[in-house]
Amino acid sequence: MNGPGPDGIGSGPDGAGSGRDGAETGRDGARTGRSGSGAGRDSAEAERDGSGAGRDGTATGRDGTTAERDGSGTGRDSAGAGAERDGSGAGRDGVGVGAGRRDPGLQPERTRLAWRRTTLSGTVAAVLAVRATLHGGATAGGLVVCAVCCLLWLCFLLIAQFRIRHLDRAAPRALPPRLAAAAVAATVALAVCAAALIA
């Protein structure tokens, strides 16, 4: 979907509850309030997250205020005024807020926290892996697999740090697919090591 496109039309709303972001641009007073499922047109209604998988939804009401609900279960934020009222930032050039002006909805910060949360989950898994190795006597093979797990954890940490460093810039770009693939590869490898440690 296109949020704030230069023609101000945006895209068709989807009523299925898939947790989309919608940003509103006010252009010459014309209301183009487009939100995802269940968004109240007359109020700053947030999107309900039905999948429990932590979808973020941004909904903007007619008056342009924004309430963001984070469905990941780690705390609800409500950031106000995330929409571009004057339409000068979001989407005119397709890039987003102008250089030097960070998103008032704190999206890069939220993404950074999401990376931190993910490394925390990875740490828990790695600690359990170490515990599994050491519990009841460590075999040589077990120690090797444990070392691999720790290496994978380190790799994940480096990936996260690299991405977080990039997010601190003024106009962060989308996640490169290779980085995403590397993170997933580390997770899958951790699962394989877990299977080796368990069986």
Partner: peptide, 29 residues
Amino acid sequence: TPDYRFSLANERTFLAWLRTALALIGGGF
């Protein structure tokens, strides 16, 4: 190219699924 905030939101969803995967791995342990 969409507004970068949409991409960031997509990225956060991706990370949420990754967290689920890591939690399930921890659960296996």
